[in-house]
Amino acid sequence: MLRNVAFLRLWTATTASGIATWALPFVLGLAVLDRALTAVELGVLLAARTAGFLAAVPISGVLADRYARRRVVLWSGLTAAVAAPVMALFVGSSLPLMAVAAVAMGAGQGACRPAFQALTAEVVSEEQRQQANAAMTLSVRVTTLVAPGLTALLALFVNTQALLLGIGVLWLVAALVPPRGNDFAGAAGKPRFFAEFAEGVREARRHPWFLAGLGALTAVIATGYSATGVVLPLVSRDRYGTEAVLAGALTAYTLGALAGALLIARWRPKHAGWTAFAGLALYGFAPLSLLLPVHPAVVLAAYAVAGIGIELFNVPWFTATQREVEPSKLARVSSLDFLMSYGLAPVGLALIAPAIGHFGAGPVLAVCAVVCFVAPAVAALVPSSRDFRTRS
């Protein structure tokens, strides 16, 4: 893969977009610490970014199948890059204009995701895609591990506006560096957005393993991810009396994901689908460790196992989608993937806190753990799920 110049350019662009995506909420959080923003304003801006993301993902899926994927990445990155200095200009002075910029940055983030997925299938040969997808996720995990400290260090020397301008530069890299793909035009004639998106849905339905996996992934993210986001800080504070468990669990998860990505980059399991679903089910140990009064080391170990498992699922999942889905509809199917799995994650986050208030943390965590274990097991029962291959 290191000798594939086109892939290295694509990897650089996706890494830049990943860092920019991660950095925005962190930098805005620093603005709250500097009293340039309030906590309420931070929530408004993050909600605006999420709205832009969700609106752009299906549109981008259609456009990336209709036009050259490289062009969609270009305009997506430029949109986010232009929004960054606008946000920097109005920090602390105009929340409406910052919210508009946040919507634009979210739209740029959402629009590039399906296009990047489809572009990977264009510039990387089939036998190398698993390594390519593992390399992509490795960059994300390394960023998550290293970037908080680096950003906090930069914040000692530059202000929030400069950090936001740096995010804009990263989006410029994401827009300008990717290689050219096949430059095919997938849809001919008069543009018909809803009809073309429906074609992507029909293509997804043609692959039973994809529908089963998407359902399992959505269920795990909506429950296990929500437990991490809402319950882990409470357990760290109330049960163990320290924030170190929270920080340690998140670090253990990232290190586990790095190990999982390195493992799956070389490992070719006999039944990729069953292995992936087994990995996804490992996320159930995260809420289970929060349910039981265990030693903090057990919590850290559970999150490390969950991190390993999520990459054992992600990499074969992306690789199979790129292999099995018709190339002219790949971006639309990928947009459906991102829209359902990550798009519904905020719903889980919004519901779990009231559920804990009504039923208590114990029953909610038990349900989350059961869902994380059972949903992948049910998905694995679909015949084509064994190898992530559509039967003729």
Rank of each mutant, 00 (worst) to 15 (best):
D337C: 03
P363T: 06
P376S: 08
L292I: 15
P58C: 05
A135P: 01
K190P: 06
T160R: 06
L176E: 11
V103I: 15
P178F: 12
L349Y: 14
Y283F: 14
G229C: 01
T390R: 15
R3C: 01
A212P: 04
L262K: 03
L78H: 01
V72T: 12
A216Q: 00
M136V: 15
E199W: 01
G43W: 09
N314T: 13
G215N: 00
P179V: 13
A83M: 08
V142R: 02
V146T: 09
C112R: 05
F26G: 00
S328A: 15
L234D: 14
G224L: 00
P269K: 07
V173Y: 10
A118G: 15
V27R: 06
T12V: 04
P179W: 13
S341N: 10
F359I: 04
D238R: 13
I19R: 02
Y225C: 00
L176P: 11
V367M: 07
G61R: 01
K270Y: 06
A350W: 14
T12P: 01
V103W: 03
L45E: 06
G229D: 12
Q128L: 15
A134R: 11
S60W: 10
A361I: 11
V235C: 14
F193C: 06
T137G: 00
A379I: 09
G18Y: 07
S94F: 02
A135G: 14
A31Y: 05
L138H: 10
L10E: 05
L119K: 00
A247G: 15
C112M: 09
E122G: 08
T12F: 01
A331C: 05
G357Q: 07
V298F: 04
G77R: 03
E324W: 12
P376F: 08
V86R: 07
F285R: 02
A272C: 02
A20S: 14
M98K: 04
V245M: 12
N159H: 06
G273V: 03
K270M: 08
R237C: 10
K190F: 07
V177R: 13
T137H: 09
G241V: 11
N314M: 14
E122Y: 10
R71H: 09
L28Q: 02
Y283M: 13
L95N: 07
G189P: 06
V146C: 10
L150G: 05
R202Y: 02
N159M: 01
V44D: 03
A281I: 03
W267G: 04
A353C: 08
A272V: 13
L330I: 01
V140K: 01
S385Q: 02
L154T: 04
L163R: 09
H295Q: 12
A278Y: 00
L45D: 04
T50M: 12
P346L: 13
G362S: 13
F184K: 12
